[in-house]
Amino acid sequence: MRTLIVRKLIVDERNELFVEFSSDFERVREYAALVLTDCPESFKEGKLLEQQLSEIIKNGIKHGNRRDPAKRLRVWFDFRKRVRFIVEDEGEGFKELDAWNDFYRRRQEALFREDIDAFLSLASYRGPRSDDDDGGNSLVAALEYWNGGMIYNGAKNKVGVVRWFTGGSG
């Protein structure tokens, strides 16, 4: 028997799916918790979702906006059937993206070879603007966690991420 399915377009008239923050590094985790206020508990996986979102917000505030309080961080979010975020900063963009991909490839190859010394030498990414607290590790875990993809815009100052929770995703 055929079933008629008519989908419809939805408008977020109250702008509920968007929030904007100042670049206050001390409030990174508070911002993430605020975005997740209405997120279903089943998507949170304990504190894992909050942690992964915090990393993206931290990167935008610290590396993108360079903690400049005059610069804003914008977050679009959607919790229907899966978790999706788009986070935009007002910085120059992730100019080291290709260098980071090369670092990650070499890191994974060392791990695959079980070459622990080589892996340890590549365990942390050091870019021109990295400090002692940076290691590029947030992106390593992010590539595993965001199983629906992690994609930057052309200017590399805006990133979209998706995580699905069905179909064996883990």
Binding site: Q51, E55, L120, A123, D133, S138, A141
Partner: peptide, 16 residues
């Protein structure tokens, strides 16, 4: 109950 990438970076530096 909460570990982030800065914590992971610390662990790596301690291992090294």
């Amino acid at each position: 109950g909460y570990l982030d990438s800065t914590g992971v970076g610390t662990i790596i530096r301690i291992v090294q």
